[in-house]
């Protein structure tokens, strides 16, 4: 009897220590029935991609509030592409200006959520894209 569970990696790339948002989202996804792997702070893009591959997640969620998102998020997207994991749903959030959001979405991010996004919207987005 198959029991598929959506597995999600929530990661904090770079040195930013603000993990309130990441942890709130992680709890909301757990409460929506997903298995959420949280990496903790200060992970490099390489470590994040390696964890995502080993954990075989369908979704990676990145959070950054330090302004380093352009550099670090792009690196994660680049590594995933290089290793052939473009099927992983890639989402992000944090303090990210609209201009950067558009750029990141062009670079392979499926969605960058702006501050104030409800967790139920994030849950729906993931469920639609993974199951749909």
């Amino acid at each position: 009897m198959a029991e598929n569970r959506i597995r999600v990696l929530i990661a904090k790339p770079g040195l930013d220590g603000h993990d309130r948002g990441a942890k709130v989202v992680a709890q909301a996804l757990r409460d929506a029935g997903m298995e959420v792997i949280y990496t903790g702070l200060r992970r490099t893009p390489e470590q994040i991609v390696s964890a995502a591959i080993q954990e075989d997640v369908q979704v990676i969620g990145l959070s950054s509030l330090s302004g380093a998102h352009n550099h670090l998020f792009q690196k994660v997207a680049g590594l995933l592409e290089e290793k052939g994991y473009t099927d992983i749903l890639l989402i992000g959030g944090g303090i990210i200006p609209d201009k950067d959001r558009k750029k990141l979405e062009e670079m392979g991010f499926d969605c960058i959520f702006s501050p104030g996004t409800s967790t139920s919207k994030i849950v729906e987005f993931i469920q639609d894209r993974v199951n749909g």
């Binding site: 040195l15 380093a68 670090l72």
Partner: peptide
């Protein structure tokens, strides 16, 4: 960390 450290990548001068 010094600015040339691996983990500083992308964070120098940001905040």
């Amino acid at each position: 960390l010094d600015s040339d450290h691996d983990l500083a990548d992308g964070e120098v001068g940001k905040v």
